[in-house]
Amino acid sequence: MNIPENLKYTKTHEWVRVEGNKAYVGITDFAQGHLGDIVYVELPEVGSLVEAGEALCSIESVKAASDVYSPVSGEIAEVNDALEGEPGLLNEDPYENWIATIEMNNPEEVEALLDAASYAKHCEEEEEAMG
């Protein structure tokens, strides 16, 4: 399982890459693996406000639908339109294909997120719990 060192993570399997005040948000390799073939991404609206921990958008596979939770608070600056026509990009490369960028209004929130090592440990624990 791929967990790049340079990103921050949530327990709900989102990743964040910070560039200045802008946060790129996507789902992790673990998340896409468990969802299976992703068939639809309901992208958020540009300009809408989101709180950390709130649902940012939802992702559908054939037999599941799950919410993507925003790791940080702020305003949706951009969405990755390519996912609309090709949701499978999230399966192919979940780290290259971000879902949205957020103009953060509280950049300190990033500090509280997991680093790669802690996230890897969290994934292991979840795998075990699932049997």
Binding site: V39, Y40, E60, S61, V62, K63, A64, A65
Partner: peptide, 12 residues
């Protein structure tokens, strides 16, 4: 498009 439906999305 079953992900819209009750048996998957339940209360949503």
């Amino acid at each position: 498009l079953q992900a819209r439906e009750q048996h998957i999305r339940r209360e949503k």
